[in-house]
């Protein structure tokens, strides 16, 4: 398929998906609470008119005024979204680069280790670590920090290293994922005929590995880049929530305003959710495009 059409198609599907997200988010969810003399009653009046009105109001605000309105603090939504996205971008970018680089390295090491008697630390170790739930790991580390290293400020966004702790937590799982992909695709190259030819021509082992095996694997690994991004985005919430980091995923959860008293509280911020989802959407689309372009480059070789 033409590269341009491929890129355009992924853009089109993203736009459809974004529209669906908007429709889900704008679904009316305000509950009327009335207090009588003796008790508290709630009532949920749903009407399609209200739904249509909300959608119309959203789009007219967006297209006529070019804004998303104000949030619960009477602060422009777009500025707020950009602020929290900025905080999260450092974490996302650090985690993306670090998990990719370290993951590929770990994959290569796993592949080498699998041929020695330290097999347990190789791909099996990676796999085992991948099976542990992220929140258990975070809970353990959090407890350890609180109990034994109280002077490391894990809950504060102020110190310069504030973005490193969430990046580290977010990175672990995607890194293991890439390590596994790398290790599997390297072992799939084993015994390929072109490798035998190159070997018979007297190419040294390391050159053989980096010039042929690794370049071929890169294509496969790069196709998994969008999944890597998704893993990072979905880890982000639990990590930001646990560490109280002022990032986008945490803000998204606050905007949903889940309350244990009324379900959805009075401060549900639909436009903030849409704004942050839009930024995530752009990120995913961007990574998808990189992946499509890169795949093409490596396939031609």
């Amino acid at each position: 398929m033409n590269l341009f059409i491929q890129l355009l198609r992924s853009l089109f599907i993203s736009m459809l998906a974004m529209l669906a997200v908007i429709l889900i988010v704008l679904f009316p969810r305000q509950v009327n609470v009335t207090v009588t003399e003796t008790q508290l009653l709630t009532d949920y009046p749903f009407s399609f008119q209200q739904y249509a009105h909300q959608i119309q109001a959203f789009f007219s605000e967006l297209f006529l005024n070019g804004s998303l309105g104000v949030n619960r603090y009477q602060f422009p939504v777009i500025e707020d979204v950009l602020l929290v996205m900025g905080n999260s971008m450092i974490v996302i970018a650090t985690a993306l680069v670090a998990s990719f680089v370290l993951g590929v390295l770990k994959g290569i090491i796993d592949y080498k280790l699998d041929q020695t008697r330290f097999r347990v630390f190789g791909s099996f170790g990676t796999w085992l670590m991948q099976s542990f739930p992220d929140f258990l790991l975070i809970l353990l580390l959090q407890w350890m920090f609180i109990r034994y290293f109280p002077n490391i400020r894990i809950f504060s966004a102020e110190p310069w290293y504030a973005f490193m702790i969430p990046s580290f937590f977010v990175m672990i799982y995607p890194m293991l994922y890439i390590a596994r992909i790398t290790q599997v695709s390297i072992s799939n190259q084993e015994g390929m005929l072109y490798l035998l030819v190159a070997k018979s021509k007297g190419l040294p082992r390391w050159l053989l590995f980096y010039k042929h095996v690794f370049t071929n694997c890169m294509g496969t690994i790069l196709t998994h880049l969008p999944s890597l991004m998704l893993y990072i985005l979905s880890n982000l919430l639990i990590v930001e929530y646990f560490l109280n980091y002022p990032g986008a995923a945490n803000r998204l959860f606050i905007a949903i305003d889940y309350s244990v008293n009324f379900g959805t509280g009075g401060n549900y911020e639909a436009t903030t959710i849409i704004g942050i989802a839009f930024c995530f959407c752009l990120l995913v689309l961007f990574v998808q495009w990189i992946s499509i372009i890169a795949r093409r480059r490596y396939e031609v070789k």
């Binding site: 599907i13 993203s14 459809l16 998906a17 974004m18 669906a20 997200v21 889900i24 988010v25 679904f27 969810r29 509950v31 709630t42 949920y44 749903f46 969008p226 998704l230 985005l233 979905s234 982000l236 919430l237 639990i238 995923a249 998204l252 959860f253 949903i256 889940y258 379900g263 959805t264 959710i273 989802a277 995530f280 959407c281 995913v284």
Partner: peptide, 28 residues
Amino acid sequence: VQGWNQIFSFIPTILAAVLLLSIPPIQN
């Protein structure tokens, strides 16, 4: 399939779950 997959990839799974599970008709 593509659309379905994409919709829920823009909002992390856990957030999509929170968003949908807290809609009043489902909540109550």
